[in-house]
Design a protein around this nucleic acid. Structure first.
Lengths: 248, 248
DNA sequence: AAGTGGTCTAGACCACTTG
DNA sequence: AAGTGGTCTAGACCACTTG
């Protein structure tokens, strides 16, 4: 046992044990006390090793609870299929499309309200500061566990008098409603970044510090204007983003 | 000062100071000792706050060095343009295309060797286990700082006798060479995940634990086969991935 | 009530960078 | 040589979960 940075060795040992299946998905790791004794180290040192494995996405832990090997497979988020017109016509939103492909149970909670666009939202939608937008905030769950927050902003003139201002937007969701009112979608641009969550996001997603999130900013365009800004915060460990790109 | 989890307050104060510009890009934060005194807390508590800000991508720190506000803007990685045939014909590789768009100085170090495909590589390229592949390992730097590792695997029968087996693959890189030998690229599939780096990756990229990386797996396809597997490990904080998606 | 993961203090030392 | 960020020990307590 190295005297300097023994947490590396502890993390390496546990990582190997997980990868070889000694600790299978959903199983508990040894308790902190057991690891302290086994390696002859202090509590903080064990904690450093645990923190590393958590940031690698191998384990999850809850205070008072237990340290568990992660069991859930990543949700495949299929960028091409999920936004296709075919799926929209069939009446499924993108999250539901992913669920059907991945065989998990989707659940979406929505809150809606109009508001004045701040500078960032106005810039993305090419509106003037303070223009009215309609906001749909969604918490998405997979098999009951929150995995994603998505907040959509649409220029109010596109949504007034449509089902987009209802809690339930109807079959095909907001994109189907936009196309019905003559706003044909041409393309989407997605920008992907990653970072740690802030306190509000961490609480809503039920994750701790150090568990990274994906931040996806998506703008939907018609031929002449920006129709929707969607800001997504997703538990990084739970997702694999899949993009299909033409070579031409 | 809250007695329980004071690191949250310390992190919040520092975050605000960075966001308001009190500590500008490249500037140092107060030393650990100063923060211990100011908040009346122990060293570990300050460390917890610093760790949080680092995982949010706001600061970077080096042992013996200093804690600095991050200065570099994210590298825009433009998935559509960077792989377009037009760019390839103009003779620029994808990384160089990004550099031209983002105005930073690119540098690529390459090591090359043939090897037998392991099970994972064989699966992605639809080869039999142990089939020979040609491997190109690249370390990519922006303005001298390592930002990305990329390892390409190509079936050996596609590369033998071509410049793909040279260090310098010539104008347009390996995709241009593949197309010259009759393997027309039809599409790419990119899969994006994120996690912490392992020790080797952290050392090569010069980042610490808790700084997440993006793991991008890209496969290039012709009409009838998989031509190349590229495994990319990129410093998450430095990148913004941009994808353009058709609505049809 | 007992157990567990997480956080805290106080003090020490290590590895590294800057003068 | 001095300063700094990072890690460690030993022990305590907190918040939470499970019995």
């Amino acid at each position: 046992m190295a005297r300097y940075r023994p947490w590396r060795q502890i993390a390496a040992d546990l990582r190997r044990a997980i990868e070889t299946g000694e600790y299978g998905p959903g199983e508990r790791l040894p308790t902190g006390g057991a690891l302290m004794e086994r390696y002859g180290v202090a509590r903080q040192t064990v904690q450093n090793a645990i923190e590393q494995l958590r940031s690698e996405g191998l384990i999850s832990s809850t205070p008072g609870g237990r340290v568990q090997v992660r069991t859930r497979r990543p949700i495949q988020r299929l960028a091409r299929n999920r936004l296709s017109r075919e799926e929209r016509v069939e009446g499924r939103g993108a999250f539901l499309t992913d669920a059907a492909a991945g065989q998990w149970r989707p659940q979406v909670d929505v809150t809606i309200h109009p508001q004045a666009a701040d500078a960032a939202v106005a810039h993305e939608l090419r509106l003037t500061d303070g223009a009215e937008v309609f906001v749909r905030e969604r918490v998405m769950r997979a098999d009951g566990v929150p995995v994603q927050l998505a907040t959509s902003y649409l220029p109010r003139d596109l949504t007034r008098g449509t089902a987009i201002e209802q809690e339930n937007t109807g079959p095909g969701g907001i994109y189907a409603r936009l196309e019905e009112t003559g706003h044909r979608l041409i393309h989407f641009v997605e920008r992907v970044r990653t970072s740690a969550p802030d306190d509000t996001e961490a609480a809503a997603l039920g994750i701790g510090r150090g568990e990274p999130v994906l931040r996806i900013t998506r703008v939907a365009y018609s031929s002449d204007r920006a129709l929707e800004l969607n800001r997504i915060v997703a538990v990084a460990e739970r997702f694999e983003l899949v993009y299909e790109l033409p070579a031409d």
